[in-house]
Amino acid sequence: MCRVIEVRDLTKTYPGGSREAVAGLSFTARPGRVTGFLGPNGAGKTTTLRLLLGLTRPTAGEALIDGCPYARLKEPLRRVGALLESGGAHPGRSARDHLRWLARTHGISAARVAQVLRLAGLAEVADRRVAGFSLGMRQRLGLAAALLGDPPVLLLDEPGNGLDAAGLRSLRETLRKLAAEGRTVLVSSHLMAEMALTADQLVVIARGRLLADASVREFTGAKGPGALEEAFLRLTGGE
């Protein structure tokens, strides 16, 4: 159960929504590998991650981390690191202050704050207000926040958004390294080629439903990363 992300028959219907955002979804992400969470825009990836993080409540089913709903985890930042779209930092605060208040909720030291700022390549701009940050810098701040508590489980929603080629490469290396350290890494993306290079396991969804749950090798066969894109488009009906 430890370090395992488990989604069981998860369903979410928003009030006034015409259809289920997530419909009976089940999958598991295990430690030691990068699990790519793929789907076209609007497939329900973000909703699923929000359900896992207790930000949204499921209509039915369960979303568990370490066998437990997120909201019941003690010291959640030491168990789960999360990056949500747009980073979630107040634009009026500096990057360092954003991490400082987060650290304060868990008694994490200022030295660790400085360490994750360096790790994310933000040491130079740490005392500038987030309002002046590019999308890529905000993503890196979000990643720094996710790593703050040195958590064994990571949930990252489109962490590659806004990153340039060098940034994407460094993100890929970071994710591989985190998985190699024995962590569970669940990464959502709509970029197939990038996931083919990063992930070990792929969970593909569309319209809130599971389409496939297989290793990258099973997906592409011997044909290499290009085949994944084709397989994905075939699966999702070209959406």
């Binding site: 430890c2 370490d66 030491r78 168990r79 304060r104 008694g107 030291s109 200022a110 660790r112 040195d150």
Partner: peptide, 20 residues
Amino acid sequence: MPECPVSKVAGEVAARGAPG
């Protein structure tokens, strides 16, 4: 609740709980 290991690497300095 399962007893899963919690990271201790991030040093603990300041107050936790409600004061934190």
